[in-house]
Write a protein that binds this DNA or RNA. Structure first.
Lengths: 265, 265
DNA sequence: CGGATTATGTTAGGTAGCGCACATATGTCC
DNA sequence: GGACATATGTGCGCTACCTAACATAATCCG
């Protein structure tokens, strides 16, 4: 039973000046996104860009042999679909819903129009892209140099920062496909963290009990990414009000991205 | 003894319409870049953007423990310094010269002006950025899933595509720091390729003898990156004329990026 | 409530790449 | 031409992670 939402729960949207925001507001469609929904398939045409509010999305690279890795996550600090205005029209990666929740979407054409006005929206989008690039590069280096436990900590912290609670609805299998490792590897790493009293988990749920414990084990990559986001998007990150003030906005016309709720393959 | 160069040996510059090109041409400074020169230090302010013609540059991530990985390479198909117009003013990565050669540079301020005109230059830069993002993501996934030999093949092919010859001036130690692995690992992988008759090498030189041999061992990542470049920048890639027609342009005022020629640490 | 489904735990053996220590070869420079 | 710096080859033990095949446990659902 999700709480009411409003577009400015997405921090990029919230950072827009009133004039630009008002221009877009009528075109922002509320959407409900469910765990496993695929928003973009690799190579597909982008029809919309998505501004998550409570949902968390994940960009995946899927290799020929079926194995995959997360390249970056997108929460209420960001937007999905940057390739649109970068000129590609398609993404080379797949976008899936990592945590069920809501968000807003905007028709590709409208987004392009707004981008071309070269206003603050354009600046925000470009700076966000830059931050995303940092996250991707750091992931590349992290994959090379750091241990699974460290990477799990990094991933948990990044995800936690996008959530209002400290409990992820997430199987180890799913986490494994995010990190691009075997499920058993995650079992082992998560087991260590649980023994250390940092997290607790049960079938499909992971609860972070001791955030500072994660921070003490995580590799530098987490801090680097956070710092770069803070540097590039200070106005966006300051407003940490994901408060669930019920202001019943846009609650009626929520649409679903798909019907099947879990289509992970 | 380098051949004469002209700005349109850089394929991004060459793809500009005459009007835009003419506007920039007077401000393009020829530069000579030597192996090991550091063009940007991580976190430093960007004073110029660089358009390589014969040089090849490399974006590195350096971790706290000193280990590093290449995130992406930049040859005459690209430009170094995209973070400038993405809004960052600084790069989070280090840029070093991977193959000595020439290029042109443009003052950051002028580049920004041109970018803001929202002409073809802006479009080119954005699409190039998108292609770069693909390369980075693919690297992240490749680091996770593919063997050292495959990665070496990928790296050799990508580098080869940016070179007029088939001989790289490059120690195994350097290759190792690109791929983010141990030097011994490269020795072993290169040894395998040499035994297979694909490459030949001697102290600081690697010669690709059988390109198709590389292609048969490389992972999919190479093709994905190439394809994405071709899709996004068809106009840029078509002109494969890196011909060394001697047209003595801008030969007099070549400047060096630094004095020390090998400052790899 | 009982059975099907799905998540997690555990084992055993294999392997790629690491760290380290050293041997050898190849240029370079006085 | 000899000494020195630097690049490359090799061996060995080690660890993290993988492949694969199960055992057990939690949750869902009829």
């Amino acid at each position: 039973m999700p709480a009411a939402q409003s577009p400015n729960q997405n921090r990029l949207l919230a950072a827009l000046p009133a004039a630009e925001f008002e221009r877009l507001a009528p075109h922002l469609e509320p959407v409900e996104m469910l765990l496993g929904d695929i928003l973009y398939e690799s190579g597909g045409l982008l029809q919309h860009v998505y501004f998550p509010t409570t949902a968390i999305l994940s960009l995946h690279y899927v290799m020929e042999d079926g194995s995959s890795s997360e390249i970056a996550g997108v929460g209420n600090e960001g937007v999905l679909g940057i390739s649109l205005f970068m000129g590609g029209n398609t993404t080379p990666s797949r976008a899936v819903v990592q945590t069920s929740g809501q968000g807003y979407r905007l028709k590709a054409q409208l987004m392009m129009q707004e981008f071309k006005r070269a206003g603050l929206m354009q600046q925000l989008m470009l700076r966000y892209t830059q931050a995303l690039i940092t996250q991707m590069s750091q992931t590349a280096a992290c994959n090379r140099h750091h241990s699974l436990v460290q990477q799990l900590c990094r991933w948990l912290l990044l995800t936690l920062d996008r959530m209002p609670t400290n409990e992820l609805i997430m199987t180890q299998e799913l986490v494994a496909s995010m990190l691009g490792v075997r499920r058993e590897g995650v079992t082992e790493a998560a087991g260590k963290l649980q023994q250390a009293g940092v997290i607790r988990y049960r079938r499909g749920h992971i609860t972070v009990v001791d955030r500072s414990g994660l921070e003490s084990q995580v590799c530098e990559c987490y801090a680097v990414v956070k710092k770069e986001f803070a540097r590039l998007l200070p106005d966006v990150l300051q407003r940490q009000d994901i408060s669930q003030q019920s202001q019943n906005a846009g609650r009626e016309a929520v649409l679903r991205t798909t019907d099947r709720s879990r289509s992970r393959k």
